[in-house]
């Protein structure tokens, strides 16, 4: 937890616009990264980021200053993403734009590998996908993920392990893994 998070929150609650800007700048990269990696659509991600920060500022009074701020904000972002994904599955036009690549293309020939990984991640159950993205793409530690998804660390580890195995099996079945005859390091 950043040492000045409580002070920043207090300033936000007093209506300090500069504090609001500072809070947005501090967390927008994490929130936007999570949203775009979960939703795979830039415009949707921006909308969800906006909703997330709206809810953050509305419920900032409820934040427990004894807990770190980042997992709390990421938890709100996860909930908004999950709600958005649920709503999107009910919309018929969602099929096309799910293929929109949110990120830029890699320069080398690893593009195919990246797409296969992205596809495999997209096929995971929602909770597996969330913890996988948080751990491997957002570089969040287990305890922060557990706080964000409001689950015990053991549950998070179980979900992550299962997610990894599913992705590895998917990569194997898609022929992305070369036959290994030599010893691994």
């Amino acid at each position: 937890m950043s040492a000045d998070d409580p002070a920043l929150v207090r300033r936000c609650l007093k209506g300090d616009v500069e504090a609001v800007r500072a809070l947005v700048e501090r967390f927008q990269a994490d929130v936007f990264g999570l949203c775009i990696r979960l939703l795979h659509h830039r415009q949707d991600a921006e909308d969800v980021v906006q909703e997330t920060f709206l809810r953050v500022f509305r419920s900032l009074k409820k934040w427990d200053a004894a807990r770190p701020l980042k997992p709390w904000i990421m938890g709100i972002a996860v909930n908004r993403c999950r709600t958005w994904m649920t709503q999107r599955t009910k919309r018929p036009e969602s099929v096309d734009y799910l293929h929109e690549t949110a990120e830029g293309r890699p320069a080398d020939d690893s593009g195919e590998m990246v797409r296969e990984i992205q596809d495999a991640v997209g096929r995971l159950r929602a909770e597996y996908r969330v913890v996988f993205v948080m751990f491997h793409e957002q570089n969040m530690p287990y305890d922060e993920i557990a706080q964000a998804v409001s689950k015990p660390i053991g549950t998070v580890k179980t979900w992550l392990h299962r997610a990894r195995l599913e992705i590895l099996e998917r990569l194997q079945s898609r022929g992305m893994v070369p036959e290994v005859e030599h010893e691994l390091p």
Binding site: V114, E169, V180
Partner: peptide, 20 residues
């Protein structure tokens, strides 16, 4: 052995993902 090889591929792929 295949699982370990897949894990290496996964780690390389994650590292190759472009920044947002």
């Amino acid at each position: 052995r295949s699982l370990f090889a897949s894990a290496d591929v996964l780690l390389k792929g994650l590292a190759a993902k472009p920044a947002i």
